[in-house]
Design a protein around this nucleic acid. Sequence first.
DNA 1: TTGTAGGCGTTATCAA
DNA 2: TTGATAACGCCTACAA
Lengths: 344, 344
Amino acid sequence: MDSINIKDIARLCGVGVSTVSRAINNHPDINPETKNMIMQVIKENNYIPNNSARNLKRTDSRAIAVLIKGIGNPFFSKMIRVFEEEIQKKKYSFILQRVDEHEDEVDVALELIKEKKPRGIVFLGGYFSHSKEELEQLTVPYVLSTIGMTDYSGELPDFSCVSVDDYAESYKMTDYLCKLGHEKILILTAAPDDESIGRLRLEGYKKALADNGIPPSLSLIIYSEECEECYTMDNGYRMMDRVLKEKRDFTAVYAISDSIAIGACKAILEHGKRIPEDYCVAGYDGLDIARYYNPSITTIRQPVEEMAKATIKILFDVIKNKAEHQKKVFKAELVEGESTRRVT
Amino acid sequence: MDSINIKDIARLCGVGVSTVSRAINNHPDINPETKNMIMQVIKENNYIPNNSARNLKRTDSRAIAVLIKGIGNPFFSKMIRVFEEEIQKKKYSFILQRVDEHEDEVDVALELIKEKKPRGIVFLGGYFSHSKEELEQLTVPYVLSTIGMTDYSGELPDFSCVSVDDYAESYKMTDYLCKLGHEKILILTAAPDDESIGRLRLEGYKKALADNGIPPSLSLIIYSEECEECYTMDNGYRMMDRVLKEKRDFTAVYAISDSIAIGACKAILEHGKRIPEDYCVAGYDGLDIARYYNPSITTIRQPVEEMAKATIKILFDVIKNKAEHQKKVFKAELVEGESTRRVT
DNA sequence: TTGTAGGCGTTATCAA
DNA sequence: TTGATAACGCCTACAA
């Protein structure tokens, strides 16, 4: 890299490097004229400061890092937008870091902390179950946002989280279907070994059935065969198609994500059945597509925007020592679509 | 940051820092026993090398950077997955960098080059119209992947690109609708000042109409009112709703993206009309949802996976001096869905 | 208001 | 196979 650096600029301007540095970083104690002159030269020479060198030296980064596992999840798209807005409002910069499905998010965070020295971290997506010891290495305040996690109720590590109560909301949806008169409710859920939201939503479903006096039926619990891509339309289609070929008996389908629900709808329709007349379908998440699908899908709408805002607010409160870490649970809304109806 | 560094490790191991460095970086000339011992100590002390320092010093990064404008575009999700796979196969690491809608992707690239020294860059999304001068600063080989761009045919800068011919494919779809007997084809397109794929697809539409002897009608060209989020379902819904309230005369709707098409479908259905009996609808992109929607949407399926693979292949060919830069244009496939039909 | 010099944590060079 | 040391490009005391 024979590229231009701060020293070159200093030489070109006939000033010291620190003066150039001051110009770049909007330091107060610098002569405006000098500054303008320097900025001019910088522009003319297309000088770009090296971030690695800056990060290396700096202690103060004024940045928030968002680590996201499962980019491409449409549910996160909106959150990211809000994160960016809110973070910009605070005059912080926004570092978005993708975490691979097989990667350990805490490892990634640890690396990032050293590299970029963010003031705070948001974990989005994935499942959070790390040893207290591992978590203690996270020297930067962090918030878990809409993320499944193990129960740290024993001695809880020091972090915040923002989420909905997947168990309760899933209960709500199942209960809603029961109250509509459904007694044979099929659930399309994650893989059997899922320990995250998949399990929570399944448990909520079971409890609601029990409370409505409906005996559980193993043949109505459809587990995903794969772990990786289990919340997709493709997977929903495959699961539903399989079920329909087996001619099981049910009147409603509850899919633990809207994407799964849509795949399921298509399978039902392709089998020549109608929704909601032959089968009712319900989803979970409240994606835009749930509203735009035909029929629109009854779903649990998570208050994405408020959750994202709360995430950032809490994080900044902690950063600025305005408040302690907190666990915030949002209420989701059951949105009735055209995909469900009362049965006798 | 009173965190542990390479010197501490060296001291703890009773070796020099360079030996530790060799251990970390899998250098060949190091005693395996020494190496094991060092790695052991590193693990025990949770030592994580500082990437900023590494990047600062290193010349050889073995990384490919993908710059993406419009993360959250479902069309890109698949591409990213393929990029990651292909890049990993080559034992390179994968840097995903988001570019804000208002940011200049070349500026971001320039900064990234200094910071991380990637061996190659992929630009994904957005619109590419930069001065030759600006482009020349890009000292790293790059590929434009599915990205709209100005015509550099004069003196073309030295880069590759991979895309479909938006003009031709749009022509194909419009021509298809014409051949089905449609003469009044409404197009839902981008904002009037769009210079990117929006314009190309519109031009393809116009040409196809002309070639089919259909006089152009301004009242059938519906421009998006906003630029930002114009390829969304929301926008499609709004545009179509507006049109339907105005009771214009048409038999088919061609939306320049599947998302717009879906929003449009919903609006049509909510107005009590049927698809394809009352209005036919066609989209563009070939998203999964086009297949899963009800009715499934006739669309132009871009060969996402092949395009992504080609992008990486070309990039590596250039990096390894195996080949010159090239412009590769893929053929897209018109997928017939249930949303269109022949009219008399 | 400005310049000089030292150090951030690492890798590369060179000598041992 | 190792170790000392000089960069990498920048920021920040401290001195001027």
